[in-house]
Amino acid sequence: MVVERHDLDGPDGVDALLEFTRRTWTAVSRWHVGDIAWTFGQFDGPAPGTRTSMWREDGRTLAAITAFGAERQDGATLTFHADQARPDAADTALSWAKTVYPEMSVWILETEHHLAAALARAGLRTDPRDDGPFFLAHRVTLDGTLPAVNSPGYTVRPLRGADEIPRRAGLHRAVWAPSSVTDARYRTMAARPPYRPEFDTVVEDPDGELVAYCLGWYDEVNRAGLLEPIGTLARHRRRGLARAAILATLHAFRAAGGDTAIVYARGDDGYPVPRTVYPTAGFTAFARTRVYR
């Protein structure tokens, strides 16, 4: 068979990327189906400002690279994933990327040893002096020790369905302003797997306003959930509402048969709050991202 490159260009490409990510996921992988759904599901294809290339053999995806900011003077930022059983596909993908993005920076999780080996073969290295932004991967086991959800005066519940999407998308925009998430884009994302409203947790104040949320993504094949994104309106922060939404989503994962859940938080001092929240919900950090150049 011949490994051929294809650019993600529509819903079929998103489906192929989801299948590839689900099939190759491990407990130490950076990519999860939730990352794919959040990044590309709003558009049912390429996200603005990105280019995603996939290397396939007989219709089966073996490696993929997403480039962000390819037009920047200092080079593109890439995320990279490959089938552990096919290092040749990883090498083919990186060989192509070096010609297209000569000033690229590639982010992986330090536990993805097969990707680190491929990057080393391609001549890329980490800089031990690099003190720029990085992410910490956290995980929690969904066993009987999960804390109860506690949010006095507030209601924590799943999204009730499509009718609430304008309020839900509006909440995201208010938390993360400026944001590109429109009502229409949220509807597109919510209309297809792997989105499920029972994992889209919202927190409602006594006046009925949505004030916090945690969006969960569940991979039923690997029995693993991902939290992405999470937020609270500024005037309702420091009341434990994000933690309550997180815990409610974890309980929903467990009810669906989940074994584990993961979340990524900035680990550097430039954005310190999230890394203090997740341990209170039972998460433990197990790895950080590394940048290869």
Results as ranks from 00 to 15, higher is better:
63 A>M: 01
98 K>F: 07
150 N>Y: 09
78 L>N: 06
279 P>N: 07
220 E>H: 14
290 R>H: 13
65 I>V: 13
18 L>H: 07
182 T>V: 02
62 L>D: 01
289 T>D: 00
192 R>I: 05
44 D>A: 14
211 V>G: 09
234 A>F: 06
122 A>N: 03
213 Y>R: 11
189 M>P: 07
137 A>D: 04
259 D>G: 12
28 V>I: 14
100 V>Y: 05
82 A>R: 08
135 F>G: 14
265 A>Q: 10
179 S>W: 00
180 S>G: 11
154 Y>M: 07
92 T>D: 12
211 V>Y: 00
269 D>L: 15
243 R>H: 10
209 E>L: 12
99 T>K: 15
241 L>V: 12
267 G>V: 11
262 I>Q: 15
176 W>T: 09
238 R>N: 13
169 A>W: 00
11 P>K: 14
291 V>L: 15
104 M>A: 14
57 E>C: 11
284 T>P: 03
1 M>S: 15
193 P>H: 07
89 A>G: 07
195 Y>W: 13
182 T>W: 00
126 T>C: 09
246 I>A: 13
127 D>N: 13
148 A>P: 00
242 A>S: 12
213 Y>M: 10
228 E>S: 15
280 T>K: 15
24 T>M: 05
3 V>D: 07
215 L>M: 15
4 E>F: 10
231 G>N: 05
189 M>T: 09
102 P>K: 09
12 D>C: 12
186 Y>Q: 14
184 A>E: 12
280 T>C: 03
226 L>P: 07
59 G>F: 01
217 W>I: 12
132 G>I: 05
150 N>D: 14
10 G>Y: 01
279 P>I: 04
265 A>H: 08
250 L>F: 03
172 H>L: 06
237 R>C: 09
175 V>N: 03
107 W>P: 07
172 H>G: 04
131 D>T: 13
14 V>L: 13
137 A>W: 02
197 P>M: 07
2 V>A: 15
230 I>M: 11
285 A>C: 05
